[in-house]
Design a protein around this nucleic acid. Structure first.
Lengths: 248, 248
DNA sequence: TTCGTTATTTTGGTATGACCAAATTGCGTC
DNA sequence: GACGCAATTTGGTCATACCAAAATAACGAA
């Protein structure tokens, strides 16, 4: 592909397609990245070399790089060489980050997202109660212990709290779930950060986690779902008050 | 903001921030779009006017436009004026379209995504069985009738099939769900398209839908979930065979 | 020789100015 | 007032130039 004729793949592809010249470059780089020809983590050649390779101006090359970056195929830090990134579920979700953050500006959107989380975690605990393996249970126990240990340190507790829920997302062994969890936590974090915390509240939280695990150990999906619902709705109440004044 | 001093907001913001100059413009336009100052559907001023407004070169202005476009805030067709687009849940998911399609190249990824769908729809039917309103039920019945009517026309049947499931996604009254449904169907469509169809299979599908509705009417979440699981796993079997030969 | 330091060269970010082709606008005609 | 053609705008692309930061090479001290 390096030996391609730029009169064929470059200008031609651009003009016929009606699209921009950058599209051709984007497509080619995309293929190279996905196919592994460009190794994940490696850096791209300098722009001036790319323009030679693709027979395009720097303008076009840079437009291609910009687009690929926002599509998640490249990591383009201000003054550094672009780094090749093979799309993963995490990066996919990261891609919508900006938009979601704006959606999050309104209270109703936060509630919508939180409902999604509630929905997912209800399903997850059911799944866990029904199909958890020994090591899942072990992980849950461990997370709970860490939880308890951190009750007096709200900062640390928050982390162990997130970690507890993360265990549930790993139960289905489907990589999409952990990616979703990461997205949730990062999107909801700003609101959770404003939530007042205290050892008492942490302890309450801990007990709710405990109840969830208990139901899971009983292999009781309905009970687990109910415990999870109570847990998350309680958390929502604490967050909701931070919205005072905001209407939408 | 139009009367801003370009020596302050333009170059300065760029150089101090360490980021690119485009970032400032991106941020400003983003705010204007989200705040509604730039009306959704309206067109942006010409690039040459924007460069005057923002005190930046066309290079930078165009980079901002490109980025905003791939972030879903603008719709930028090749030779036309960019159109303002307020982000919606649909557009958010559309944004990751390209990456997901690549992920979908491997069989395991398709399975992962399909499992997610199964997970979601299991939760949805439970929700429906427990909390469906009269009009939800009505919509399900209607979808089922349309379903039956189209049994002999595989093309039409596929549409009514999708429509049936779509009803479930509307039950929670959370706009994120329908957006997810659209995403699923568009991402999985290429594989579903390859699936062999016939009136017999359509009829079987119809009966499965019927079973789901029956369980919902019985207000039986477990039964509904089971019916849904059977339904989707059966469909998966039909799709799976189209993967023959592919390993990953 | 090795490790820091300092020159030098690359390289990315931005600005200009120009050109073409398609889109838009304006105008004169039917 | 509808229609078609000419003039003007506007978006896409290129070439060039400059600066500052980054990468690299050269160099001197330990």
């Amino acid at each position: 592909m390096l030996g391609m004729s730029e009169t064929e793949l470059g200008p031609t592809a651009a003009s016929q397609g009606g699209g921009r010249a950058a599209d051709g470059i984007i497509a080619q780089l995309e293929v190279m990245i996905v196919s592994g020809e460009l190794v994940d983590g490696s850096t791209l050649p300098p722009e001036r070399e790319l323009m030679a390779r693709f027979g395009a101006s720097r303008t076009v090359v840079r437009e291609a790089l910009t687009t690929l970056t926002s599509r998640g195929f490249l990591e383009h830090r201000p003054r550094f060489r672009p780094i090749v990134r093979k799309p993963t579920y995490d990066i996919v979700l990261q891609g919508v980050d900006g938009m979601v953050r704006h959606l999050m500006a309104s209270r109703s959107s936060v509630r919508n997202l939180y409902e999604m989380r509630l929905f997912v975690e209800k399903g997850l605990v059911r799944e866990t109660a029904l199909h958890a393996r020994r090591d899942d249970i072990r992980a849950l126990r461990a997370a709970l212990v860490a939880n308890e240990t951190a009750i007096d340190d709200s900062e640390a507790f928050y982390r162990t709290d997130v970690a507890f829920h993360a265990v549930l997302y790993r139960v289905p062994r489907n990589p999409i779930f952990p990616a979703i969890h990461d997205a949730y936590t990062s999107w909801l974090a700003p609101h959770w950060g404003r939530m007042l915390r205290s050892p008492e509240r942490n302890a309450a939280n801990y007990r709710q986690h405990q109840a969830i695990l208990a139901a899971v150990l009983d292999r009781d999906p309905d009970g687990a779902e109910e415990a999870m619902t109570r847990h998350l709705e309680a958390a929502w109440e604490l967050v909701r008050v931070t919205f005072d004044g905001e209407q939408t």
